[in-house]
Design a protein around this nucleic acid. Structure first.
Lengths: 245, 245
DNA sequence: CCAAAAGTGTTGGGGATACACCCATGA
DNA sequence: TCATGGGTGTATCCCCAACACTTTTGG
């Protein structure tokens, strides 16, 4: 069992009677959908999987919570839009960032037809301090089980992102995006348990993780009131396909 | 081993000095990227995996081959755009259609900043007769190993689609999109072998396929010069996550 | 010496793989 | 009767899951 089926059913509507635009026509942008990027940013805080939400402070969705995003500028790639908006809002650089899915339902933005290319990002909890110098009324980490009704179709985007994250935990090394530089095996196991929402066997987990060539020893804990554990760090922080479970 | 890592590295470029658009601004569409849908349509012909290509007959890419696509109209969903353009070009309805990835590099369309939401479609070889009443110079099924340099970034899109298809063959039932209503187990195995590009053991393949609750018996072959095989059909043609290999 | 978390091996069962021969039909 | 592809069973191996006690440190 592995990954999410990426097809989401979208509302169907008959085409208009106007002829459809094709690549060869002159393009009238006012008849077109435009592109935004929205990013689901995950971190682990207090043993919970959390998402970064911002409170919209004007417009149709004033006072609703939403995931951060922005319209794609004509000379910024999708990836850079996600990366730059994320950096502006959180001060975070070098986070794990991956395209998720594109949402294009007709009614999803009340002002205008906008297609949202969603991304998901993984941030290590220690770095996840927020840059509050923002135009938003609020910006907060919210545990996924306490998320209410959000602006736009952002609940659907987050739900999809959670599924994708769960699958990716099982067959890739993305977990590195959520971990600090050094960590214990118990901490790593805990992150898996939080995201997969099930308990794992300590011995089997250790054997499995150590058998794949993913992490290396990095010293020992000090000053804890019990047997100090070995610390580990990732050998490299490049995405890999690795079957974990 | 399971699925493709969906992140593709995109060219990086510094943001402009203009302030970035956000959800709350008035939107000037001329500063925005607009959305197209491009679809990689697969079928099996002559024991080869083929993609539907069209020959562009005017504009910058005149005489290049490309995958079919079109600009997303302001009141058509992404899915419907893919479905409707595909039906217009091929006459095919009820095909398997799934969103693939969104491509947003800056230079990918020479005329204008266009983000392409790509889809992939699966068509059963028997139905894959083409509707030639088109505005294109040519429309053809091309075996994937004979595809040359295409217009836009369509080679990258196809390569990505092939990878996705290979992964999906292993853990879903999508193969139904490529099969006729009735088929033999040997034909089904052949389709797997073509797409996965490796040989499979006949006995193990049969045991595996029959052990998961996917297909049902549907009579026997007649008039063949050897022991007639049983025919099968899919129990239902809904996408499912099913580990095959 | 006690509390707390770290660390460590073995066993059994199930699923995957590898492998070769007989069967049913049309010509 | 022959050529063609259809159809079938078994043995082995490896991986996964289940399971409990000892070790090391600080207080």
């Amino acid at each position: 069992m592995c990954i999410v089926d990426t097809n989401i059913n979208l509302m169907s509507e008959e085409a208009t009677s106007q002829p459809h635009l094709t690549r060869e026509d002159e393009i009238d942008a006012s008849r077109c959908a435009i592109v935004a990027v929205d990013t689901v940013i995950f971190t682990i805080k207090n043993n919970e999987l959390c998402v970064l939400l911002i409170k919209v402070n004007h417009g149709y969705f004033k006072d609703s919570w939403a995931i951060p995003g922005g319209i794609v500028d004509i000379n910024e790639t999708l990836y850079d839009t996600a990366k730059n908006r994320l950096e502006e809002k959180t001060g975070l650089k070098d986070v794990y960032l991956e395209q998720l899915y594109s949402f294009g339902d007709l009614g999803r933005d009340p002002r205008r037809r906008i297609v949202s290319v969603s991304y998901f990002a993984l941030v290590n909890g220690e770095k996840a301090e927020l840059n509050k110098t923002e135009r938003y009324a609020a910006i907060e980490w919210i545990p996924i089980h306490k998320i209410g009704k959000l602006a736009y179709d952002h609940n659907a985007i987050i739900n999809y992102a959670i599924l994708r994250l769960q699958y990716k935990m099982e067959y890739t090394n993305v977990v590195y995006g959520l971990m600090p530089e050094k960590f214990t095996l118990s901490e790593l196991q805990k992150v898996y348990e939080i995201i997969l929402e099930r308990q794992l066997d300590k011995r089997n987990f250790r054997r499995k993780i150590l058998s794949i060539d993913l992490i290396k020893e990095a010293g020992n804990e000090i000053g804890v009131a019990h047997r100090p554990s070995k610390l580990y760090s990732f050998k490299d922080k490049k995405r890999k396909i690795v079957q974990i479970f």
